[in-house]
Amino acid sequence: SASLEDVKTAVLGLLVILQTKLYTLPASHATRVYEMLVSHIQLHYKHSYTLPIASSIRLQAFDFLLLLRADSLHRLGLPNKDGVVRFSPYCVCDYMEPERGSEKKTSGPLSPPTGPPGPAPAGPAVRLGSVPYSLLFRVLLQCLKQESDWKVLKLVLGRLPESLRYKVLIFTSPCSVDQLCSALCSMLSGPKTLERLRGAPEGF
């Protein structure tokens, strides 16, 4: 439990870093931090981490990651405290083949985003970082199938509809809506759902 406290501190630090690096160059920093966060949550489900502190780590990670939004130009952003989304000039939600690297070039400044813009690109060529939603999407499927803490599952179920409104997140990387529907149906009809959940409301 003591070591998990250190892990929790590290994860919180990564969330803060991602919130900053999403809007700064090099964009590969945001890509790497995002991948680290998603990989860490995957390990929770792989090794069945069920301690309360592990659940709190997942809760905080999902609470942040499910706020990711994308505009029509595929640029990622996060809402501010007033709910207004600021889109990044440097990070996009497109999935890119590994051989192309985590970044790609664009020939010049991008068109203005639909929300308040981030800082304008400084040079004639900007390297865009790929932060594909499919990585998070796979972890969300694991959550629906394996999550043991009701608070975490409730958060994910509550945030998913709003995330799905931003269709560009889903359609720019390999996210299977069929698998999502299947996971939701299995969660509702499967007898093991109630068996594994802690803290579920009576009558769920």
Rank of each mutant, 00 (worst) to 15 (best):
S1H: 08
S1D: 13
A2K: 12
A2G: 10
L4M: 12
E5I: 08
K8Y: 13
T9V: 12
V11Q: 02
L12D: 15
V16C: 15
V16L: 12
Q19E: 10
T20F: 04
Y23A: 04
P26F: 02
A27W: 09
S28A: 12
H29M: 07
H29Q: 09
R32D: 03
Y34W: 08
E35K: 13
E35N: 10
E35L: 09
M36D: 05
L37S: 02
L37T: 06
V38M: 09
V38S: 04
H40Q: 02
I41H: 00
L43G: 12
H44K: 00
Y45G: 00
Y45Q: 01
K46M: 09
K46L: 09
H47F: 11
L51M: 09
L51N: 07
P52C: 04
P52K: 06
S55H: 07
S56G: 11
S72A: 13
S72L: 07
L73A: 12
L73N: 11
L73S: 10
H74M: 05
R75N: 05
R75C: 06
L76S: 06
G77Y: 04
N80H: 09
D82P: 04
G83P: 03
V84Y: 12
V84P: 08
V84K: 15
V84W: 09
V85H: 08
V85I: 15
V85Y: 15
R86V: 10
R86D: 07
F87G: 04
F87P: 06
P89H: 12
P89K: 10
Y90G: 05
C93L: 06
Y95K: 09
Y95I: 13
M96V: 11
E103K: 13
E103S: 11
E103M: 14
K104Y: 13
K104Q: 14
S107I: 11
P109R: 10
L110T: 12
L110C: 15
L110P: 11
P113D: 15
T114D: 14
G115F: 10
P116F: 12
G118N: 12
R127D: 10
L128V: 14
G129M: 06
G129E: 15
V131P: 03
Y133S: 04
S134Y: 10
L136A: 11
L136H: 04
F137V: 04
L140I: 13
L140K: 00
C143S: 05
C143I: 01
E147A: 00
S148L: 07
S148A: 10
S148H: 13
D149P: 01
K151A: 14
V152P: 00
V152D: 01
V152F: 02
K154M: 07
L155N: 11
L155P: 03
V156N: 00
G158L: 12
R159K: 10
L160A: 01
L160K: 00
P161W: 05
E162P: 02
E162Q: 09
S163Q: 11
S163P: 06
L164W: 01
R165E: 06
Y166C: 14
I170T: 06
F171C: 15
F171L: 15
P174A: 08
C175Q: 05
S176E: 08
L180R: 01
L180E: 01
A183K: 03
L184H: 01
C185Q: 05
S186I: 07
L188A: 08
L188K: 00
P191Q: 15
K192L: 08
K192S: 14
T193W: 08
T193Y: 11
T193H: 08
L194P: 06
L194K: 06
E195R: 10
L197A: 03
L197Y: 07
G199T: 08
G199I: 06
F204R: 03
